[in-house]
Design a protein around this nucleic acid. Structure first.
Length: 674
DNA sequence: AGATGCATAAACAGAC
DNA sequence: TGTCTGTTTATGCATC
């Protein structure tokens, strides 16, 4: 409290990660921001070449993600295994198995975090642990079954090698797939469970230390991948048969990716050791094998430094590294917990990869379909084109335009996974993300916040809204549409991790905004002063936009509107896949998820500006015009309402429920003492 | 280039 | 006296 102003003021320069002193310049690096303005004056149309480029970029993004995954898995597997166990089996263990063995332990850091930030009661902790244990039990059972399946599959492979029963083999494969599905389901359940825990404040995720509480079940085993793998296995097997090789394990190895060769021998030596079946050929294991035989290429050791996450201890040689590994990273609670975190990282990447794949698939499918459609010009995206068209169609009567996106007449390709779901793009721009694009273009702030609630709560990402918009939102969310200053503070800290630090700065900004903007009206209350929102004034405040020229606006609708989001989505996707460590709980959400939102923003913004164009700056603006459109659009706290048809594509991420009362009511005062 | 919007910083005053 | 609240001014950047 007392330190708040002092410390914070001082720390401003550095504490605001982005924010160093330069005020706005911090804002500049914002991914969202960059995504927008840069893509804002884009080419007019998206031709076939662009589409190809898009696809290529998506593919590259996937590739990057895959590589990261492999690296992470490599670390993960070797890391867990290294402290002990010299048996050869571990080498053949799939990450799944490893993951399942890992107890659900909360690291001291996490515990500290929980205690500090979340004020967990012992009961809550107890519940948390129990739930996790229950999940572990389930996993173990699944693991047993899984092993059996793999053994069976291995047998089948051997039989097939001898030229037998391909059908049975396929049955097993089918079973495998079914099982993997089961694992995935389980995984999803876990995710939900843990997300709910987060929501309850039982877990938090730090941006720098991703702790998405997920068990990496079926690592990398997306059903499609499984199928692919199976195909590879079988086809390669056939090939090998013809060439006279006879170790299925070897076959598996050779079919598997193209990394270190040495691991082959290990596999060859133990064809039956494949209790994990062909799945065990997955890259991570190969890597672990590899480093066993070539210890100096240990994934946890490099450049004389222990690469155990968060360690970085200097080890002059490999021997000392091994000593260090065995002493500091033995199989204890801490190590396993750290490993779990690492697995979460991997898990997150996998989810991301899977989703990106889906998106890519949907994009390609959609574009293919689109290209066969004679009518709509070179518009790559259904959402855009349809919305744009309908906008244009109704342009004649702008007054009638609702601010909710016009219902698309064309089918919406379920490419996007949610209207303005935040992705990692913004995560690595942890700082002030300028510009309040949503603000400017009138995206329903309520729905954005609702959609990305978990994200905002957990990641120190500046919400892309102005203070004024946020304040307004805070006030409008309150039951009585009025809040005291302190309540506004609390809302900020409760809803946004970003505002849990540098309080002096943003609180000052809040006060400043309250005073500055006419739209905020101070009302003397019984218990003091409260702040309310004057919607009319608020809407007046808006228009900093494309003004005037209707043709410009129209042009924007038809071209800019879909170019920008596309670029943004691509950027997001790329960034997402290249900055893994900033993953958090609520992400896993598709970059193109921003697409619908961005499109809507553009259109709404444009249309609104069209509507209010003449009255923007004029006091003679019709109240209806001023209030109704935006009000109607942003008012509903329920994003479903606000989103209209676009909400069809919301994701599991969607967590509109606002958080329980456990919040940071008192934190603004204390938390800042850093 | 100028106007405008916004973020940030800071000074100041009044209330508690 | 110190803190909180509220107002105001100044500055810098981005956008139009």
């Amino acid at each position: 409290m007392m330190q708040e102003s002092g410390t914070e003021t001082k720390s401003n320069g550095s504490a605001i990660q982005n924010g160093s002193s330069g005020g706005n310049h911090l804002l500049e690096c914002g991914g969202l921001r960059e995504g927008r303005p840069n893509g804002e004056t884009p080419a007019v149309d998206v031709g076939a070449a662009d589409l190809a480029h898009v696809q290529q970029q998506q593919l590259q993004a996937l590739q990057v993600a895959r590589q990261l995954l492999l690296q992470q898995q490599q670390q993960q597997v070797s890391g867990l295994k290294s402290p002990k166990r010299n048996d050869k089996q571990p080498a053949l263990q799939v990450p799944v198995s490893v993951a399942m063995m890992t107890p659900q332990v909360i690291t001291p850091q996490q515990m500290q975090q929980i205690l500090q930030q979340q004020v967990l009661s012992p009961q809550q902790l107890q519940v948390l642990l129990q739930q996790q244990q229950a999940l572990m039990l389930q996993q173990q059972q699944l693991q047993e079954f899984y092993k059996k399946q793999q053994e069976q599959l291995q047998l089948q492979l051997l039989q097939q090698h001898a030229g037998k029963q391909p059908k049975e083999q396929q049955q097993v494969a089918t079973q495998q797939l079914a099982f993997q599905q089961q694992l995935l389901q389980m995984q999803q359940l876990q995710q939900q469970h843990l997300l709910s825990l987060q929501r309850q404040g039982l877990l938090t995720i730090q941006p720098g230390q991703p702790a998405l509480p997920l068990q990496p079940l079926a690592q990398g085993m997306i059903p499609t991948e499984l199928q692919q793998l199976w195909k590879e296995v079988t086809s390669a097997h056939t090939t090998e048969e013809t060439t006279g090789n006879n170790h299925s394990s070897l076959d598996l190895t050779t079919t598997c990716v193209s990394s270190s060769a040495p691991s082959k021998t290990s596999l060859i030596m133990n064809p039956h050791a494949s209790t994990n079946g062909q799945l065990s050929v997955h890259t991570p294991k190969r890597e672990s094998l590899s480093h066993e035989e070539h210890p100096h290429s240990h994934p946890l050791y490099g450049h004389g430094v222990c690469k155990w996450p968060g360690c970085e201890a200097v080890c002059e040689d490999f021997q000392s590294f091994l000593k260090h590994l065995n002493s500091e990273h033995a199989l204890d609670d801490r190590s396993t917990a750290q490993c779990r975190v690492q697995m979460q990282v991997v898990q997150q990447l996998e989810l991301q990869l899977a989703k990106d794949k889906e998106r890519l698939q949907a994009m390609m499918t959609h574009l293919h379909v689109k290209s066969t459609e004679p009518k709509t010009a070179p518009q790559p995206l259904n959402l855009v084109s349809s919305v744009t068209l309908s906008k244009s169609a109704s342009e004649a009567s702008p007054q009638s335009l609702p601010h909710t996106p016009t219902t698309p007449t064309a089918p919406i390709t379920p490419v996007t996974q949610g209207p303005s779901v935040i992705t990692t793009t913004s995560m690595h721009t942890v700082g002030p993300i300028r510009r309040r694009y949503s603000d400017k273009y009138n995206v329903p702030i309520s729905s954005d916040i609702a959609q990305n609630q978990e994200f905002y709560k957990n990641a120190e990402v500046r919400p892309p809204f102005t203070y004024a918009s946020l304040i307004r939102q805070a006030i409008l969310e309150s039951p009585e549409k009025q809040l005291t200053l302190n309540e506004i503070y609390n809302w900020f800290t409760r809803m946004f991790a970003y505002f849990r630090r540098n309080a002096a700065t943003w609180k000052n900004a809040v006060r400043h905004n309250l005073s500055l903007h006419k739209c905020f009206v101070r009302v003397e209350n019984v218990k003091g002063a409260v702040w309310t929102v004057d919607e009319v004034e608020f809407q007046k405040r808006r228009p900093q936009k494309i003004s005037g020229n209707p043709s410009l606006i129209k042009n924007m609708q038809t071209s800019h509107a879909y170019c920008t989001p596309l670029n943004a989505a691509l950027q997001a996707s790329m960034a997402e896949n290249s900055i893994p460590l900033y993953t958090t709980a609520s992400m896993g959400n598709p970059t193109l998820g921003n697409l619908a939102s961005a499109i809507r923003e553009e259109l709404n913004g444009a249309m609104e500006h069209t509507n209010s164009n003449e009255s923007d700056s004029s006091p003679g603006r019709s109240p209806m015009q001023a209030v109704h459109p935006v009000h109607v659009k942003e008012e509903p706290l329920d994003p479903e309402e606000a989103e209209g048809p676009l909400s069809l594509v919301t994701t599991a991420n969607h967590s509109p429920d606002f958080d329980h009362d456990r919040d940071y009511e008192d934190e603004p005062v204390h938390e800042d003492v850093e």
